[in-house]
Nucleic acid binder design. Structure first.
Lengths: 202, 202, 202, 202
DNA sequence: GATGAATGAGGATTCATTCAT
DNA sequence: GATGAATGAATCCTCATTCAT
């Protein structure tokens, strides 16, 4: 049965990979709106029609390109809960958020575009996500809960809530960078985590 | 010779206003991608060409429409620093952020589009902003500083940094709403402020 | 309110007319499949985009082009029932069918295409036809009924059925012309009418 | 070197058969326009390229598929002239036309497409038809002539002409079905034959 | 004989912008 | 000031056909 995204040959595999790579690069470089199918195909060194042997449409291609880059970092993040109790909470959180940040660097343009473009959002919603794969909010919440049980975090905060807060904060920090003089993301993440940990109240 | 900004007669004024209103409504209703110049003109009840008597291009129109809605809330926000010392810090912050949230409700699609669309971003950067008008980060920082001096906030936090944190958090909360079960924005803002005030550390 | 097919200016009118003429000519010359929007626009001497100011899509344009040519002949045909009793039945019928044939000459490629192309069929079904305008089957049936009452036609045939038969026959004669040696349409129509009038039974 | 018509091995034979069957089914089900080479190959369970081992192009495949279905009915029709004198003329004609109608049911979309698409028409014209095989007009004319000689049909009609008339009528009835209330084809064929036999004149 | 990946010209359609009236 | 017709480049996508394996 012929399906899109079915590359059985070795050549097909490499074409598919080239398309994904080209798509990721272009979205990163020129944004979603300017990333045309023509440009992707050209950058991948294939004909425009080839794109449609591998993906049903533009949105699916770009989404796949994004998700593909997700994978390794998500994988790595899964080990976070195991680090509970070891090292400073602050460092663990900062490390984790920084990993996510690296992932988002390529993902962000697409995330933003999804919020503007109905097509992309639809592609995302109809994409079959691996239900096994742990998602960042859950993993982070698990970690926070573990630290809470170890007494290294307040008892009266909801771990899930705190996790969402951290992630939303990271998103905001990346998507809407504070005006210059801008500090490197690494630094602003660290400061934000510190502030959140100690609180503003005296 | 006046090419744009043709609103010198009374008729011109009302046309301009109609365009701005239509643009704001459309961006809010159908998103930036779907907001075409055609649709705006039609919604404003004017011819397509008329749009270009008042604005040099689409981006400028949408930007103007957004800024216009900014104004009253920015105005109102300016009074925040004066509330330092009165009422609970938490309530003051929540009130302030909620006002901003209302403003953003119409503004957000445009902000997001700006992050995807270079054209829009360029229009924003070349827009002549009133240098007198206080911007939210500054106002919020001023307020925080005042509270700090009153001893109602930690001494060792940078008010500017905290202000940015709060705003970024609001942006993230609005742009990337946490997954269901979703709580009303008002509530999630309140929880976030509380969490930030007390901190996560025991 | 902006609508397609709304040409208020004189210039608009003439562009619309040019498009219709070009479309009719092309469909006649190269068939529906080969009639591209590009070709129509070029033949009409306008840009391709202009086409879409006047018609929502290709199918609507071609349909409109066909219907426009309908009109005058349909009009003329309406007088057929009044001719009942005058002249030979055979001649009246032949005249009528020949008129229809002239109309069909341009219409036929489109009729055929409608039977192959779902899009066109959809356009036809959603087209707003003038309910006042008499349609050929009805007019023809009216005429036959009148002749029947004058005793010039068998009493035991259903006029509607006979009308349909005549029209279907005309359609078949035009669409699937008998193999060579081919006679001119005018002649084959005449022979068919004669055959049908006298019947095959001795 | 054999380029097409590669059906020399047994495997080749069955592939070819599968392609023909798939093509016939698709044309019947979704129409000619929607019948893509891709769809045919997929329905036949073979690769796209395989199609071109058996047929030089799409048109040839579809034409072959159509002709193949012709065969058995054409065969059966050949016996019609032998029925002259037996049974009612009306019944013989109705039976014959109904057989043809069944054949046309699958053939019609293609016939119609041929009238719209020059490519297909060209394929038909260049197809090598079996010169032995009797074609419907001839067979029907033979039958009519036989009945004529038996005195069961008017002497003054040209059998060939009458045969063409009947066939054209059938085509029209199938291709351009009269508007609702639509009667089953079987019935409308019968009525048409009756009308034609007795004639319209009193 | 069969595969299926690749091709690439060509299709319909959109839309910000210009300009004669 | 306003109109609205016209523009035309650009977009995503289709599909019959070829060819290396």
């Amino acid at each position: 049965m012929l399906r899109h995204d079915a590359a059985v040959t070795q050549r097909g595999q490499s074409t598919r990979a080239a398309l994904l790579a080209a798509a990721a690069r272009l979205v990163h470089d020129v944004g979603y709106t300017q990333t045309t199918t023509r440009a992707v195909a050209q950058a991948a060194g294939v004909a425009e029609g080839t794109l449609y042997r591998h993906f049903p449409d533009k949105a699916s291609l770009l989404l796949a390109a994004a998700l593909e880059q997700h994978a390794p970092i998500i994988e790595q993040m899964a080990q976070l809960p195991g680090r509970a109790g070891a090292g400073a909470v602050r460092d663990n959180l900062v490390d984790c958020l920084e990993q996510l940040a690296r992932m988002r660097e390529t993902l962000l343009p697409l995330e933003l575009a999804m919020l503007s473009d109905p097509d992309l959002a639809a592609a995302r919603d109809s994409a079959v996500l691996d239900p096994e794969r742990p998602d960042p909010p859950t993993v982070l919440a698990d970690y926070l809960r573990a630290e809470q049980q170890l007494g290294r975090l307040r008892q009266d905060v909801d771990p899930t809530e705190a996790a969402v807060l951290l992630l939303v904060l990271l998103f905001g920090l990346m998507a809407a960078p504070p005006p210059p003089p801008s500090v490197p993301l690494r630094l602003s993440v660290r400061r934000a985590v510190e502030l959140l940990l100690m609180g503003l109240t005296p």
